[in-house]
Design a protein around this nucleic acid. Structure first.
Length: 295
DNA sequence: CGCCAGGCTTAGG
DNA sequence: CCTAAGCATGGC
């Protein structure tokens, strides 16, 4: 069996990353057993099942199914590294966070937490759309229904491991079929329309990564039906890894700030913009650590 | 007639 | 340009 080792940067806490993957919600796209993460991946159109553990000072990736070539092994390594956002220099974030009264206690408490990404842009946007304006438990429930109905699976030791449905598959769904999975008519239409846009190459991660500014990305993303400022920033944060992506309208962010600052009401957008001046160039990580503070 | 959830679009001022 | 209504359902 193939095993791949990854040496994480100095600022890294596996337990904190694990927390984000296992924070009480029922995510169907990975499984956690004690300290081991199991996840199905598609690399260059081949499916692999991997398990991830932290041993000593290394991330240890075992390939449970699939037989990766040398190149595919490298791609898996790269995928996992990006999934855990290991390439970001958190030292810089901690330096500015240390001067900020809101973030200072959080970076101490949650030291080593990294942004667990959603590497596939289609999946990231679908997930953001699914989660709009509903509670997270219900969002995970409907995501599971979607994935179990339309995603590919890898069977291993009697357990099914799912991949997120492809644009091709979802573009052939009917609104009525998705409504049966408890999506609203609007969301069903957004998801199908998004799937068609990806299928037809109107949008892709590569296209966006080739753009030179966050503003251009935002425009391209918000031109998609169902994608507003919050969804676009969420996707830029979780998938495109833009450090300045900032879902400032996020309810969770508002609640976290209210709690951290001891406010009676949720902060206004203007007051958040004021606070965020201290977070310049690290708005995404500031948001992540504030989300983390919500118990 | 309960209000808020990791919002967005469209219609109407 | 700005505001309001509608969307669907679950949890508290």
């Amino acid at each position: 069996m193939t095993t791949i080792k990854i040496k994480p940067p100095e600022i890294f806490n596996y337990e904190e990353c694990l927390w984000f993957l296992d924070r009480g919600f029922d995510d169907c796209l990975h499984q956690i057993n004690k300290n081991t993460i199991t996840k199905a991946l598609k690399i260059q159109n081949n499916l692999f099942l991997v398990s991830i553990r932290y041993e000593g000072t290394l991330l240890s990736i075992q390939i449970l199914q699939g037989n990766p070539s040398a190149k595919e092994g490298e791609l898996i390594k790269s995928y996992i590294s990006q999934w855990f956002d290991l390439y970001t220099d958190l030292e810089k974030f901690y330096k500015i966070a240390n001067k900020d009264p809101v973030l200072k206690p959080l970076i101490k408490k949650y030291w080593g937490l990294r942004l667990i990404g959603i590497e596939d842009l289609f999946e990231a946007l679908c997930w953001a759309i699914i989660g709009q304006q509903i509670n997270l438990s219900f969002a995970y429930k409907t995501k599971r229904a979607l994935v179990e109905n339309y995603g590919r699976t890898i069977e291993h030791n009697g357990t099914s491991h799912y991949l997120f449905p492809t644009p091709d598959t979802l573009s052939n769904c009917s609104v009525e079929a998705l409504k049966k999975l408890q999506f609203s008519r609007n969301k069903a239409q957004y998801l199908i329309s998004l799937a068609k846009d990806f299928r037809d190459g109107i949008i892709s991660k590569d296209q966006l990564m080739a753009l030179d500014s966050k503003e251009n990305m935002l425009t391209r993303l918000t031109n998609l039906k169902g994608v507003g400022a919050w969804t676009a920033n969420y996707a830029m944060m979780k998938c495109l890894k833009i450090p300045t992506a900032f879902p400032i309208q996020d309810v969770g962010l508002h609640n976290a700030l209210k709690q951290q600052l001891g406010l009676k009401e949720k902060p206004t957008l203007e007051s958040i913009q004021q606070l965020a001046k201290n977070w310049k160039n690290w708005e995404g990580y500031a948001t992540l650590y504030l989300w983390r503070s919500l118990v």
